[in-house]
């Protein structure tokens, strides 16, 4: 096949020969994730006969669905060359705002709307600091992660706030046998996957992450797009906060504590490059399933919780080394 490729090129003397197809496939960021996912399925099935029970896996996934949903949007932020570590705190604060307002007598739909607006405002604040003031997003969002969590604690105190009975149980709603949070995750993944790979905005997100100066020179409004991404993370985090509140039936300030690391883990495990420009929604999608399979697989197999953490850590390190190694080897 390489011979025909060479012939079709006008003159290849100045250009490097095209990369072999196997290389193109291997350096796709999500290849490693897929391999690990297949491996996890086999390992799980070998460890426990209950493991391949689809409905069990789906139910397990609802525990991770909120983080996974935010991780999809976070993937786009990372591809654009920024990071947001505040989503988990945002989930807690918007859920606390919502729970507190409905307890104070506001109708639930209105309380939800205010909660979502709060999430949007938190995203806007991050965006203003990063884009308006040109501060590094990692510093800004470490700051706001603490700030939002602190505000949540002020609002909710140390108690948990109950939500109305009818609001509880989003994870028990089934759509064609699939829990609603999982459906939302899949639909959002499809939508964002389309956005990222088929639309101009998606294209420009990659271009900004690859070379922001060149992007600006090409007339791409990078500030606008990045701000939009921070807003999106804010809104989706608040939505995830509401879903968590519904699943747990009550809200505390420590809702989703440490979730930002799970989200970043999913994106990294999915082959997203931490310095921007590379990554796919498919990768994060697969990584979320991988994470659920490995975690539940280990629970089923009675692996000690401490060992579970070690396995997750090794998984991340291996996948990062593998993708970076293959990537740097094929860069000329």
């Amino acid at each position: 096949m390489s011979a025909s490729d060479l012939q079709s090129a006008p003159s290849a003397q100045e250009a490097a020969p095209p990369r072999p197809a196997w290389q193109v496939l291997l350096i796709r960021p999500e290849t490693m994730t897929l391999a690990l996912l297949v491996l996890a399925v086999f390992a799980g099935a070998w460890l426990s006969p209950f493991f391949l029970d689809i409905s069990y896996i789906l139910r397990s996934f609802t525990l991770y669905a909120e983080f996974a949903i935010v991780a999809l949007v976070l993937t786009m932020v990372i591809i654009a060359g920024e990071i947001d570590l505040s989503p988990a705190a945002n989930m807690a604060l918007s859920a606390c705002v919502f729970a507190w307002l409905q307890q104070a007598g506001l109708p639930v739909p209105a309380a939800v709307a205010v909660g979502l607006a709060a999430g949007l405002a938190m995203g806007a604040f991050n965006g203003l600091m990063v884009i308006g003031l040109q501060l590094p997003s990692i510093i800004v969002t470490i700051g706001t992660l603490t700030l939002y969590r602190g505000l949540a604690q002020i609002i909710a105190g140390d108690k948990s706030i109950r939500v109305p009975e009818w609001f509880i149980g989003v994870d028990k709603i089934m759509v064609l046998g699939v829990p609603l949070p999982v459906v939302i995750f899949i639909v959002l993944a499809l939508a964002l996957g389309f956005l990222l790979s088929r639309t101009i905005v998606g294209r420009q997100i990659y271009q900004i992450g690859t070379n922001e100066v060149a992007a600006r020179h090409a007339g791409i409004r990078s500030a606008r797009i990045k701000f939009g991404l921070f807003l999106a993370v804010g809104l989706v985090s608040a939505t995830a906060g509401m879903m968590t509140a519904s699943r747990l039936g009550s809200v505390r300030y420590d809702l989703g504590l440490g979730g930002e690391l799970q989200m970043v883990l999913m994106a990294m495990l999915g082959g997203t490059y931490i310095f921007g420009g590379r990554g796919t929604i498919l990768g994060t999608f697969l990584a979320a399933w991988l994470l659920v399979l490995v975690s539940t697989g280990m629970i089923v197999a009675n692996v000690l919780p401490a060992v579970q953490l070690v396995v997750l850590g090794i998984l991340l390190v291996v996948s990062i080394i593998a993708t970076n190694f293959i990537y740097s080897r094929t860069q000329r």
């Binding site: 990659y206 271009q207 070379n211 060149a214 992007a215 007339g219 791409i220 420009g277």
Partner: peptide, 17 residues
């Protein structure tokens, strides 16, 4: 620095503007 998107395809580079 200000022209190419090094790791992206020639095609994408040409159509960027």
């Amino acid at each position: 620095v200000a022209g190419i998107f090094r790791t992206l395809s020639v095609e994408q580079n040409i159509s960027a503007a």
